[in-house]
Amino acid sequence: MAESGSTSAPPAPVTLPQGNPVVAVLSAWLIPGMGHIYLKRRLRGLAFLVLVIAALLIGCRLEGNLYQVVPGQPLTVLATLGSMGMGIPYFLLRYGLHYQGNVRGAGYEYGTAFLLTAGLMNLLLVLDAWDIVRGKKE
């Protein structure tokens, strides 16, 4: 059968950025923005670092809850995993500074939202770093 003659452009070659996927993902999780810095996206990495740390500091200032697993309450497992997404800051706050929210504090609910958001934002950064190092994203 003869070719129809239509010429389609060949797909653009995917160029993988320099970097180890494991190091990129681990560094992205441990320190917010570090995965992007490792992958030579320094400005974006620094911006992400500032944003996540800002959410974290506001949450602490408002005495929000830094989730931990409560027996008999399965949803706290999900919330704890989400909060742990912020990496080293979670463990530093939990075990180094013995941070505890203040349930009687006026900003408790707001602070909890900021702290959980910091963890979830960093989890998205981990996924973004993974996409970059695999060449699926610029």
Binding site: F48, L51, A55, L62, A106, G107, Y110, F114, L124
Partner: peptide
């Protein structure tokens, strides 16, 4: 710091900046 409106604006600011940097070039 405990103004409901201010905290809402602050939260929207952080989330907006984060996703605009993450999803757009």
């Amino acid at each position: 710091m405990l103004s409901h409106f201010l905290l809402m604006v602050l939260y929207a600011l952080l989330v907006g900046l984060f996703f605009s940097l993450l999803w757009r070039r």
